[in-house]
């Protein structure tokens, strides 16, 4: 049995993970497998706080447009809020990259004005 992450957990007060800042692909963003990242996101329980689409819930919204990978990784490893830290022994760098790729793959939603129930 491995130690698992609900790592994006308990981020109710984490300005750093507000997913407000676009994250352009940079040389510091490792290549990841979005499909595997989605699987990990669900299997490891990240969705419990952040929702299956990383849209937020008890925890912060993480996507679309996740924060830059460097900040994302730093926060997961050394969070400043209530979220427990997840070391690379618990969540490997490869798994973290896969999850980040999943977050990057989530498209921008349509504007509220285009959804009849939200535009009234």
């Amino acid at each position: 049995m491995r130690f698992i992450l609900s790592f994006l957990f308990v981020v109710t007060v984490i300005p750093a993970l507000k997913a407000q800042t676009p994250a352009p692909a940079t040389s510091t963003t490792p290549a990841g497998n979005a499909q595997n990242g989605k699987k990990i996101f669900s299997n490891y329980g990240c969705y419990q706080c952040h929702g299956f689409e990383a849209q937020g819930g008890a925890g912060a919204r993480l996507a679309p447009r996740p924060i830059a990978f460097t900040a994302f990784s730093k926060y997961v490893r050394q969070p400043t809020g209530e979220m427990p830290p997840y070391t690379s022994r618990v969540v490997s760098d490869k798994e973290l990259a896969d999850i980040y790729a999943f977050l990057q793959s989530i498209p921008q939603p349509p504007p509220a004005s285009s959804i009849p129930l939200l535009s009234k």
Partner: peptide, 9 residues
């Protein structure tokens, strides 16, 4: 606006 996220999920 917040409701648009995962609207069709």
């Amino acid at each position: 606006t917040t409701a648009t996220y995962a609207w069709d999920a």
